[in-house]
């Protein structure tokens, strides 16, 4: 397989995974208005748990280092476990930060949780092998089914990613275009009004926070099963805001916009700048990239807050209104 094709397949895999991330963050912020400033922590927890669940038992003094679990779980089970782990972390964070009707308290909580989890994962070597991280995560189905070389494995893994991404898309769309999604958007617009109409704000925000985190955890699981390794340098602060920038650029509240954002920011921008080298210290390009992402976020909310593809307007077809009979099956929103 040629190097270019190999590279393009890698990009396609990351494109699919970043779309899943963006849909999840969109459920947090775009739909519900929850400020999650540590989205990547949910990705990381999903990745770590999926990784150590898929790996074999840690060998004392072995090459793979120390880690928990080591259950040898097969593919569809390990990412599910990653999603569950991220959901549990979200429930804990939400319990602390979502009970008050103040969006800044949750934002503060996420910033603090992000740093603490990073610190603990790095220092507590017994969890996920500390700063060195886990490595040797098996590729899904490869040893049991495909027996492919690392290069050849690209195509089957891309198919796996596309299947997972398709399911994630369907779930995200169902949530967005349902009474549930409508209630989340109402909470985003004015939580007092939603409460005055009998909606339990805490329950809705909590469930949206957990669901968004599951998207992160599953995406993280795909990442770790693709790369095969994961350590704290892979989920720095910048990673969270790459997803934020993707969401804001694509168009908050719009799942199609998330696909575009995932293409424009993490795939196109980050990859295009990877090949630029400028003289200076080793982190210079990385720093400039961070500046650009930060500036991009500010400029988008300043000059085009709705993003490239704005949230779509739901228009209802009146001919589908039933005369108190339940005959019509497709009275839901159509695109306007």
């Amino acid at each position: 397989m040629g190097a270019i094709i190999y590279y393009l397949l890698t990009l396609a895999i990351f494109f699919a995974i970043y779309s899943i991330y963006a849909w999840g963050l969109n459920i947090h912020f775009g739909l519900t208005g929850i400020l999650d400033f540590t989205y990547i922590t949910f990705v990381a927890i999903g990745a770590y748990f999926a990784g150590v669940a898929a790996m074999g038992h840690a060998q004392p003094m072995g090459m793979g280092g120390e880690y928990i679990l080591g259950w040898n779980l097969p593919f569809p089970v390990s990412p599910v476990l990653g999603g569950i782990a991220a959901a549990i972390l979200a429930a804990l964070v939400g319990f602390v930060g979502l009970r008050r009707l103040r969006s800044d308290y949750l934002a503060i909580t996420t910033v603090a949780v992000g740093q603490i989890v990073w610190l603990v994962v790095g220092n507590q070597t017994s969890l996920f092998n500390g700063w060195d991280g886990i490595s040797g995560v098996p590729q899904p189905f490869n040893s049991s089914l495909f027996h492919l070389s690392y290069n050849q494995y690209q195509i089957p893994f891309l198919v796996i990613c596309l299947i997972v991404a398709f399911i994630a898309w369907r779930v995200a769309e169902s949530l967005t275009e349902s009474p549930y999604g409508r209630i989340l958007r109402a909470i985003r617009e004015d939580e007092a009004v939603a409460a005055a109409l009998g909606k339990d704000i805490f329950r809705y925000r909590m469930s949206a926070f957990i669901i968004g985190a599951i998207f992160a955890g599953v995406g993280g699981a795909l990442t770790v099963e693709y790369i095969g390794a994961f350590n704290p340098s892979g989920w720095g602060v910048l990673e969270t805001f790459i997803v934020w920038a993707a969401m804001l650029v694509g168009g908050q509240g719009n799942n199609r916009g998330m696909i575009l954002g995932a293409f424009l920011v993490p795939v196109l921008f980050t990859e295009a700048t990877r090949f630029i080298t400028i003289p200076g210290h080793p982190l210079l390009m990385e720093s400039i990239r961070g500046m650009a992402i930060g500036l991009l976020m500010v400029l988008v909310v300043r000059y085009r807050p709705q993003g490239v593809i704005p949230e779509r307007k739901r228009v209802y077809r009146l001919n589908l209104i039933s005369q108190e009979t339940e005959d019509s099956a497709h009275g839901h929103a159509v695109e306007g």
Binding site: L35, W244, I293, G294, L295
Partner: peptide, 10 residues
């Protein structure tokens, strides 16, 4: 808040 965190990164 989004603006200030973006500026933090910048």
């Amino acid at each position: 808040l989004v603006v200030t965190i973006g500026m933090d990164l910048f």
